[in-house]
C-alpha cells in the first residue's frame, strides 16, 4: 500500500480539510459506478484479493497426490499525482475561500475515468470484466422518446425472462440524455414514463460515448469492492510546489451478466 504521508506535508489540518472536502464534494457528484453497483468495504489497505470460489489444477507434486490452487481476484491500486502551490494553500489560513484547486479537480477526473472505466468498461486489470463487455443483452436505441421507451421495455422483458427483477437503473451518455430529455413529450413526461416501467434512477456518465446501460438495481449483481477507499496523500515538496496524489485499491465484479442490457 502506498504510504499517505499526510503528516509530512507542510500544511495545517485546516488546509487538509479544505482539500479533502473539495475532493469529496467533486467525486461524490461525478463518480457514477458507486451510484449504481453494490459497494463493499472499504476492507482496509491490507486487503489484497477477493475469493473467486474457483480453483485450477496443478501438476501433481507427489504420485497419488492431487494439488489445486485457489483462484483469487487481486485488487488493483491506482495513484494519481497532482501539484498544488504552497502560497495558494497558505491563503486558506488567512481566510481565503476561493483557493485555486484546478489541478486537484483534473486529477479527480482521472480517478473517475479509472474507477468508472473499470466498473463499466473493464479498463485496467485483466480480470475487470466491465458491465458493458459482459452485458448479456444488447439493444439498439433511438433518441426519440417513444422508441427509446419501447427499447427499454424490451430490455426489461429480456431481463425478466432471464429471472432478473427490478427496480431498474439507466446509465446514459451525456448526448443521449440531452436529446432524450429535451425532446418534446407526447403528453406525458419521459421521466414519469420511465418510472411506470420501474426505472427508478437515471444517471448521466461522462464515461459513456453515445451509449447506455439498463441495469437491475435489485442488488448483488455488480460489485465494486474497496480495499483502501479513495484518499489524498502527500508525495514531496519541490520549492513552493507540493506534490499530492489520490490513491485507492479496488476490484470490480460482474456477477450476473443477465442483469445488464447494453444500449447503443
Amino acid at each position: 500500500m502506498t504510504l499517505l504521508n499526510r503528516s509530512l506535508a507542510p500544511i495545517t489540518d485546516e488546509i487538509w480539510e479544505v482539500l479533502d472536502e473539495e475532493a469529496r464534494d467533486y467525486l461524490s457528484l461525478q463518480l457514477t459506478g458507486r451510484k449504481i453497483v453494490d459497494v463493499e468495504g472499504p476492507l482496509g489497505s491490507d486487503f489484497a484479493a477477493v475469493n473467486s470460489g474457483r480453483q485450477t489444477k496443478l501438476e501433481s507434486p507427489v504420485e497419488g497426490v492431487q494439488m489445486t490452487e485457489r483462484k483469487v481476484l487481486p485488487l488493483a491500486e491506482i495513484k494519481v499525482p497532482f501539484t498544488l502551490d504552497l502560497n495558494e494553500l497558505e491563503a486558506v489560513t488567512r481566510g481565503a475561500e476561493d483557493i485555486e484547486l484546478d489541478n486537484l479537480l483534473e486529477a479527480a477526473d482521472k480517478v473517475i475515468a479509472a474507477e468508472d472505466g473499470a466498473v463499466f468498461k473493464g479498463k485496467g486489470a485483466e480480470h475487470f470484466a466491465g458491465i458493458i463487455n459482459k452485458a448479456e443483452f444488447n439493444l439498439n436505441i433511438s433518441d426519440k422518446p417513444q422508441e427509446f421507451i419501447a427499447a427499454a421495455v424490451e430490455g426489461i422483458n429480456n431481463m425478466k425472462n432471464a429471472g432478473v427483477g427490478g427496480p431498474f437503473s439507466l446509465v446514459l451518455s451525456e448526448d443521449i440524455f440531452r436529446v432524450l430529455f429535451s425532446s418534446p413529450d407526447s403528453g406525458y413526461p419521459l421521466h414519469k414514463r420511465l418510472g411506470d416501467i420501474d426505472i427508478e434512477k437515471v444517471i448521466v456518465s461522462p464515461l459513456m460515448e453515445s451509449e447506455g446501460l439498463l441495469l437491475s438495481a435489485r442488488g448483488e449483481d455488480f460489485k465494486l469492492i474497496l480495499g483502501q477507499d479513495l484518499t489524498l496523500g502527500f508525495e514531496e515538496r519541490n520549492g513552493s510546489k507540493l506534490e499530492f496524489f489520490f490513491t485507492e485499491s479496488f476490484v470490480t465484479r460482474v456477477i450476473s451478466p443477465e442483469a445488464a442490457v447494453y444500449l447503443n
Partner: peptide, 16 residues
Amino acid sequence: NENSEGSSSLGLGDLK
C-alpha cells in the same frame, strides 16, 4: 488516527 496512514479516506464509500 494520529498516524493517519491506511485508515484515512475521503469517506466516499457507497454513493447510492
